[in-house]
C-alpha cells in the first residue's frame, strides 16, 4: 500500500501546481481582508483534479495488471491510491494555510486565526469525500468518466432542485434530502470550531465517505482485467 501511495504522489504532484495557481486568488482575497473561506475554496476542485482517472488510467495502460501480478491485495492498491490523493490534498491545504497566515492583515490575524484553522480542516475533510467518490467512479468508468459523473451528479442535483423549487416544494425538498445524503456538506467551520461533531450532516458525510470507499472496493474486486492498450 505504501508503495502505491508513493507512486500516486510521484505521478500526480505536478497537478498540485495547478492547485497552487488557483489558490493565488484565495491568498490575494485573504490579503485584502476577505474571510478564510476564499482561501480554501479550490480544495475540492484540487482533490477532483488529483483523482482524475486514478484507477481507470492504470487499467487502460495495463499498470494495474502488473501491480496485481504481485501478492498485493486489490483493497491495498485502492487504499494506496486514495491515501496518495489525500496526502497531496493535505499538502495543498497546509500550504494554503501557511500562505493565508502570512498574508492575512496583521490586525485581523488573531480574530481570524481559529477560523483559518477550522476552514482548513473543513476544506480537507470535504475534499476527502470528493476524492472517495471519484475513486469509486474510476473503478468502473474509463478515461475521465469518473470526473464527468462527479460533475454531472453535482450539477444534476442543483439543476433539478432549481427546476422544482418553483414548481413543487415537496419535490425540491426530496431532491435536497437525497443530495444531503450522497453529497453532504456539513458546516465544517462550526463543527470544528464549536466541537459539534454529533451532527447529522457530519454523520451523513462519514457514511457517504465509507460507503464510497466500500463501493469502490466491491466494484474493483469483481473486475476482470484484459491487457493494457498503451
Amino acid at each position: 500500500m505504501t508503495e502505491i501511495l508513493r507512486r500516486t504522489v510521484r505521478e500526480r504532484w505536478k497537478i498540485l501546481l495547478v492547485g497552487f495557481a488557483l489558490s493565488l486568488f484565495g491568498v490575494f482575497a485573504a490579503a485584502i481582508g476577505a474571510g478564510s473561506d476564499a482561501l480554501f475554496a479550490p480544495t475540492t476542485l484540487v482533490a477532483v483534479l488529483l483523482s482524475i482517472g486514478i484507477v481507470s488510467r492504470d487499467i487502460r495502460t495495463g499498470a494495474v495488471q502488473m501491480i496485481l501480478a504481485r501478492p498485493v491485495r486489490r483493497s491495498a492498491y485502492l487504499a494506496g491510491r486514495y491515501l496518495g490523493v489525500v496526502a497531496l490534498v493535505a499538502l495543498y491545504v497546509a500550504t494554503a494555510l501557511l500562505a493565508g497566515a502570512a498574508v492575512m492583515p496583521l490586525a485581523s490575524r488573531g480574530a481570524l486565526g481559529s477560523s483559518l484553522v477550522s476552514s482548513a480542516a473543513g476544506a480537507f475533510l470535504q475534499a476527502g469525500l470528493a476524492a472517495a467518490l471519484v475513486l469509486f467512479f474510476s473503478t468502473f468508468l474509463p478515461g475521465v468518466g469518473d470526473v464527468i459523473l462527479y460533475v454531472l451528479l453535482q450539477l444534476g442535483f442543483d439543476l433539478t432542485y432549481g427546476l422544482f423549487r418553483v414548481r413543487s416544494a415537496e419535490a425540491a425538498a426530496a431532491i435536497l434530502s437525497v443530495k444531503s445524503q450522497i453529497l453532504p456538506q456539513p458546516e465544517w467551520d462550526r463543527v470544528v470550531s464549536d466541537g459539534r461533531w454529533l451532527d447529522p450532516r457530519v454523520a451523513a458525510w462519514a457514511l457517504a465517505l465509507t460507503a464510497a470507499l466500500a463501493a469502490a472496493n466491491w466494484t474493483f474486486s469483481r473486475r476482470q482485467f484484459g491487457y493494457g492498450r498503451d
Binding site: V72, A79, L198, D199, P200, A206, L209, A211, A214
Partner: peptide
C-alpha cells in the same frame, strides 16, 4: 481469492459510520 477479499476493517468502519448516523439523528442537539 485472497487478493480480491473485501477488507474487514472497511466493513467495520462502514458499520461504525452507520451507527454514528443513527446516533446523530437521535441524539444530536
Amino acid at each position: 481469492g485472497s487478493q480480491r477479499r473485501f477488507p474487514a476493517a472497511l466493513l467495520g468502519l462502514l458499520a461504525l459510520a452507520a451507527v454514528f448516523r443513527v446516533a446523530a439523528a437521535l441524539w444530536a442537539p
